[in-house]
Amino acid sequence: MTETILAAERAICTPGEILATGMGFIPGKGTYRESDNIRAGRLGILSIEGKVLKLTPLSGTYLPKINDRIIGTVCDVLMTGWRMETNSPYSAVMNLKDATAEFIPRGADLTQYFDIGDNVMCKIINVTSQRLVDITTKGPGLRKLEGGRIIKVGPQKIPRIIGKEGSMLAIIKESTGCEIQAGQNGLIWIQGEPEAEIKAAKAIKKIEEEAHKSGLTEKIKTLLQ
């Protein structure tokens, strides 16, 4: 039997496109096998890792995943915690014990800790099969975000915006002097001088638009100069 890859590495594949024929390849994430063929199961960029074919998504809404650091907005105060919007179809719940180490007496007014509309950098600690999400603010770098502005980008573009070991964000932070926090859910918080904030937001939007192209670091460097 012949085993051939029909699509090139890093090619953009559309749903249903035949990526490879023969049983020599293994369908990975975003692909599926249909008789002898491996087909694309979504729109994405193909990556070939040995015998495994994988599709990296180019678009889509955020789906909560355990251990993701996200930016949430408090939308409701519950009996023993807060409900937060997560820029996904599902809201998350932060329990009292996951919010603060302080002792909070029974019946206390919870809005003095987090009020409706507050933005919080938090971490997902649990996701159920029905997508009930638990989050925490206990951990390094997790806190309430005060001031600044929040911009929205495609959640798939976040790894590109952060860069290898945070290199891309470091460039933006350094040249604009802004403080930046990127949530995996596609929300990015920027705080600094108003002009610098705009500059940083522009740079991030540029990365989002050209995330699938190479040589981006240089482009961003020149943009920020």
Binding site: G16, G30, G41, R42, T61
Partner: peptide, 9 residues
């Protein structure tokens, strides 16, 4: 497809 949903075709 553009919305990034899982589709077989």
């Amino acid at each position: 497809a553009d919305a990034g949903l899982e589709m077989k075709d």
